[in-house]
Design a protein around this nucleic acid. Structure first.
Length: 632
DNA sequence: CACATTTACTCTGACCAGGT
DNA sequence: ACCTGGTCAGAGTAAATGTG
């Protein structure tokens, strides 16, 4: 049977899909099935609900129904196909499944144009999420059943289905509104100038990226399902997914987008890198997505800046690795470039002298040291550190034993310093070692090998005189202050090769001994010019008082005299002979004074010598006019 | 010799691309 | 979804070195 025209004419609804119209037409004209019309159009019955009637088919339907072909074509999805890829077609169109709004259905038993499109999941008029199954038996709903208003399986009235209400200011509603406006051709609300096709593929790409993520926004259906899904199981999930992507890309862009990216990178979602790569490739395919690409790239840039990259980035992203290298040092870089041990780096970090950016990527902690700052800090650190050498090094350099170093440090000849970063032991200032050598070499006199016999070498010198109180530090101090001569065969000075004059050392040691321990009897004898016999008498008479007496092994008494006391004594008393020459007076006259007891002889009763007190003598000489007052 | 620090090396977990 | 091969850089460690 070939149909020429239908008797029963019906009007196509403003919002109706062409497929719906055809179904209604066949029912109104009491056809058993859709097949006769399908045959007339050359379209298989299962293709009818797809609503992809081309212009040829529309012309035929027009002649059958009497409605203008352009009106019919506008109800077909065919125009939407223009330039769509196979993939995009899958994104857009349902196959035989039908979804609907129960309230709309109650109003009119038609299938609305928008319902056939995948991204449409809300009835804006009734603010309800569409239903895609029989509310009773949960079976799929087909076009014929929808037009009949009853489920093909359980015969339930489909308009009785309950659906979820959506708030008008909910992102679910807002996003859906934008989408629908765009599809029905309201260019004013076009989103960033993207065509519906491009927009949908962008959403699809975003679904893949954020598949399985918890919703970023609160919706009034949050309690029912709250995840972004690449393949939504129902219209509720679809609406939440769309709302999320809409929020990310078109609400407060790029902040929400960047926030979402951040969440993505911080998540441990499976196949993260794969998703990332896919998305990255996608936004590079069309220049329409440049506004996203730009933000995506800048986000990546920020990630690099913050070191939030895998440590083997060099193997797959050379340019990012280079950027990172230009900004930061790693620990390894530091100990290679600055020759600093890992322990030192750790301590510098602990002391907060170095403040690396610590980035935890998965199980690793990556340390990023700001290049400029690190160089500055390490420069000063190394400068200080380079001035430090170990005791052993210093000892080798100077040519002395390590033990000797203690004495040199004690006498401030070299300076001990704690390392900038506390080490187990203190170090020696290299500067101070060099300075010591310089001081010495100023006074060192070069000699020939033949002359060496006249001198005593450093070690021998110490061995011999160490019991007399000679110390390396003392020796060097004398040499520096030129109190003794110091000689060397070599220009390169090593302390253990220096040569000294034994006599000079002996003399100085003696002098020092007196200064430290005072005079002994022999010293006093020399100083005062009295024999020991005389001195003993004077001691007995308490004219001279020793500060200490010790008994030697052989039972002899050993006296110690205070140097000052002896010096004062020498200063205070004078013999007639010395006085005669000093004051230029007659010796016998002075003797006469003593004899006549005009002047006291302090040796009287001790020995035969005569000793006056200078003070008393001068007093008399002044009175007699031999010397002038004040002219002593 | 005892102990602390440093060095020089290996080990480890992670991650990439690319393949199956 | 899993494997491979290569790479990275921090972590770990045995041996060497430094110090008293």
């Amino acid at each position: 049977m070939k149909i020429k025209s239908f008797i029963q004419r019906i009007e196509i609804n403003e919002e109706e899909s062409l497929s719906s119209f055809i179904y209604r037409l066949s029912i109104e004209n009491l056809l058993d099935s859709i097949n006769p019309i399908g045959n007339a159009l050359g379209i298989k019955w299962w293709e009818m609900p797809l609503n992809l009637f081309d212009e040829v088919a529309c012309r035929k339907i027009s002649s059958l129904s009497g409605i203008h072909k352009n009106v019919l074509y506008s109800k077909s999805y065919h125009a939407l196909l223009n330039g769509m890829s196979e993939k995009e077609i899958k994104m857009w169109f349902h196959r035989t499944k039908i979804k609907y709004c129960p309230k709309c259905l109650a109003d009119k038993k038609i299938h609305r144009y928008l319902w056939g499109l995948k991204p449409i999941c809300i009835c804006l008029k009734h603010k309800q999420i569409l239903i895609n199954e029989c509310p009773g038996c949960k079976n799929q709903v087909y076009m014929k059943a929808l037009i009949n208003g009853r489920c093909g399986y359980c015969n339930l009235h489909l308009e009785r289905g309950e659906s979820f209400k959506v708030n008008e200011n909910d992102f679910i509603y807002l996003s859906q509104n934008q989408f629908q406006q765009l599809i029905i051709g309201n260019k004013k609300t076009a989103i960033r100038g993207l065509s519906p096709t491009k927009l949908m593929s962008l959403f699809d790409s975003m679904f893949r990226l954020f598949d399985g993520f918890e919703s970023f926004i609160n919706t009034n259906v949050s309690h029912l399902g709250n995840k972004v899904k690449y393949k939504p199981g129902n219209q509720l999930e679809m609406s939440v997914s769309i709302a999320n992507i809409y929020w990310m890309l078109f609400e407060d862009f790029p902040n929400n987008f960047l926030y979402s990216l951040d969440t993505f990178y911080k998540s441990d979602s499976p196949r993260k890198k794969y998703r990332k790569r896919l998305f990255s490739n996608f936004i590079s395919t069309h220049c329409e997505f440049d506004f996203i690409k730009k933000e995506f790239e800048s986000y990546k840039e920020t990630q690099i800046k913050n070191g939030l990259v895998p440590r083997n980035i060099e193997t797959f992203d050379e340019s990012s690795a280079l950027k990172l290298k230009q900004m930061y040092y790693t620990k390894k870089d530091i100990y290679q470039k600055f020759n600093i041990s890992r322990g030192e780096i750790a301590k510098l970090c602990n002391k907060n002298l170095l403040n690396p950016k610590k980035v935890v990527v998965e199980a690793h902690t990556n340390y990023y040291f700001d290049k400029h700052e690190t160089e500055k800090i390490l420069e000063t650190y190394l400068k200080k550190e380079n001035n430090l050498i170990t005791k052993k090094e210093a000892a080798n350099f100077l040519g002395v034993s390590v033990e000797a170093m203690v004495h040199l440090i004690e006498k401030d000849l070299i300076i001990q310093q704690e390392a900038f970063i506390k080490k187990q032991y203190p170090y020696i200032s290299k500067e101070s070692v060099i300075y010591l050598i310089q001081q010495l070499s100023k006074n060192v006199k070069p000699i020939n090998y033949d002359d060496t016999k006249r001198f005593i070498v450093y070690q021998e010198c110490l061995n011999k005189y160490v019991t007399s109180g000679l110390q390396i530090a003392k020796l060097l101090q004398w040499a520096i202050s030129e109190e003794i001569n110091v000689y060397s065969l070599n220009v390169d000075i090593k302390i253990n090769q220096l040569l000294f004059d034994e006599k000079e050392i002996k003399k100085l040691l003696q002098k020092e001994d007196i200064e430290n321990n005072g005079y002994n009897l022999g010293d006093v004898s020399k100083v005062l010019g009295f024999t020991d016999r005389t001195l003993h008498k004077m001691i007995q008479a308490k004219l001279i008082v020793p500060i200490g007496v010790s008994i030697s092994k052989n039972g002899r008494r050993i006296y110690f005299f205070d140097k000052e006391h002896i010096d004062e004594f020498k200063e205070a008393y004078i013999s007639p002979v010395a006085a005669a020459s000093k004051y230029n007076v007659n010796y016998s006259m002075l003797n006469k004074y003593s004899h006549k007891k005009v002047l006291k002889n302090y040796m009287n009763g001790i020995c035969q010598k005569t000793l006056f007190k200078k003070e008393e003598l001068e007093e008399i000489l002044m009175r007699k006019g031999y010397i002038l007052r004040g002219n002593r």
